[in-house]
Design a protein around this nucleic acid. Sequence first.
DNA 1: GATCGTTACTGAACCGAGAAAGTACGCCAG
DNA 2: CTGGCGTACTTTCTCGGTTCAGTAACGATC
Lengths: 343, 343
Amino acid sequence: MKRPTISDIAAEAGVSKGAVSYALNGRSGVSEETRQRILTIADRLGYQASMAARALAGTRARVIGMALPRPPATLGIEPFYMELISGLEAELSLHGYGLLLQMVPDESEEITCYRSWWRESRVSGVLVCDLRVRDRRVKALGEVGLPAVAIGPPSAAGSLASIWSDDGVSMIEAVEYLAALGHRRIARIGGIPQLAHTAIRTDAFLAVGRRLGLAATIASTDYSAEDGARATVRLMEMAAPPTALIYDNDIMAIAGLSAIREAGLSVPGDISIVAWDDSPICPLLDPPLTALTRDIGAYGRHAARLLLAAVQGAGVKDVHDEPALLTPRGSTAPPRVSDETAV
Amino acid sequence: MKRPTISDIAAEAGVSKGAVSYALNGRSGVSEETRQRILTIADRLGYQASMAARALAGTRARVIGMALPRPPATLGIEPFYMELISGLEAELSLHGYGLLLQMVPDESEEITCYRSWWRESRVSGVLVCDLRVRDRRVKALGEVGLPAVAIGPPSAAGSLASIWSDDGVSMIEAVEYLAALGHRRIARIGGIPQLAHTAIRTDAFLAVGRRLGLAATIASTDYSAEDGARATVRLMEMAAPPTALIYDNDIMAIAGLSAIREAGLSVPGDISIVAWDDSPICPLLDPPLTALTRDIGAYGRHAARLLLAAVQGAGVKDVHDEPALLTPRGSTAPPRVSDETAV
DNA sequence: GATCGTTACTGAACCGAGAAAGTACGCCAG
DNA sequence: CTGGCGTACTTTCTCGGTTCAGTAACGATC
């Protein structure tokens, strides 16, 4: 099969290529009558402009690039990325944009990847995930001038526009909820400390802990199930162990649940647990996990809109999405009475 | 920043664009000395060929397209796709290929998507997932002549080369294992019946059930947690309910586990369960799920290799990957004695 | 009725590569 | 000394769009 080109249409309509281009792009320079004739022919021929030719001629390639941190044993399990991509893609394809995906092992490779994309004119913009506290990618993207939007707090996004939800208020909500149940010793099993949102959650956790006069402990992990379980065990071995745990993702919460049971304790009888980012699995577990829920798909859609605006050269400003809300389920309950007063 | 082109290199080396093109593509027509000089300059300038220009000139776009069925509430949870994409991408980026992702709501839209990709010269090949029993996509792809490789049984792939693992032998292994434990009434909670691999699993399930003289029941679902739970409840309400269940994915197995507990029964005491496709969550549950394990990443890598060969016009033949192997864990045990003899 | 402005186009250049055809030169054989 | 051939290039064309500089036709204006 041969694909129809702009010249085919021009020949059939008896006009020049230029006229066809004007007609198809809705620009002035052709009469309404001619435009309609050209559009009809284009439609009949099933014409679609070649992206390669279009990109070469200087118009945008209509592709958005996204580099994903290669699985630190977690990418595949957390539904976060798939849901994000799903929302992202829904909005992009609405505007005829494609999504180019690439897995990268580390930050340097990611920067190399962006440089390559730019030099090859592969993408018209990129979406940056997992902002770090001091993120080298921001500067690198600025240097090549590739339009970009970051997912994460504006404080870490530097010159890039960012889309974010306030993890601080969600953390406060979770801690206040646990405190209201009567918990006095709580711990946070956080993700990779270098990530900007991890830092924000940690700060909020410590601040609200101080305000409420709680014993607040923090453990850092790489988001993996193993690390989550290890951290849980360490916390349970403390002299005055926490009675409630807040995990930074659901896979660690599940691993933690399993570790707690192995230690002969029960959830929520002995220990309450909360997972960050609700997944369809959370309500199915025994007990169902109390979780911080947010609409990740919407997050992706908003990110796409912001990025498309940036690609089109519009001045874009940070977008603040809804924060995650607490969904209380069976994994949280008041602590045993003996624990209630001690700190 | 301006990106360096082939002309920049030509100017700097004092030769023509043509010579540079020969040198960079390792073709004859330039002296070894000139080639080295050109390569050095290209390297210093950080040159990479523009994909747009390359694609336009007829060489391949070095992009592989993949259309994903939009979440029937399951895409995000099952780690299958993410792991597949991860393996796929690892191999593709090794060869300088990108992966273009698109979510599609149904088969017609998917075909429309392929046609668009082809007309726009967006991709050099596509990977087709979730083969159906009679798959319209096979014919559509053949019509436009877009190189394609299917993931699924060759019987459904028609003219497309396919990469597959024999789900039949895995099913036989699982059923024989349950029969060896003493189960006589087993059920399969299958996925979408139209999918080719679902049909293969079902056929194998029934065949081995007959051979071993078991009461073998089948339920069909859309892979969602809700459907999995519903099917489980229906099966438990049978006059002579099954003592072992084989789920087509882990999310349904988890939902089933929850439904069984709600009915006041225990796993594996009253009912044994097996999940297809092991995920990092399976071993963490209580009890840990017995699962059919396979290396999905390798599956993706092999698919990528096959597709790259197809794109380069090599004659490709079907590739048979390792079948999933049973990983016995705590969710399977012999049935209660009272159940053992009855059929 | 000459001038101006607008509309509706045409023709050609251009983007950055690949590929084919053309050319200059050196070398060797007859 | 000429013809033929291979090497090492250069020139030119092409891919399929976009864009810009013309230009012909026409109506309005002074």
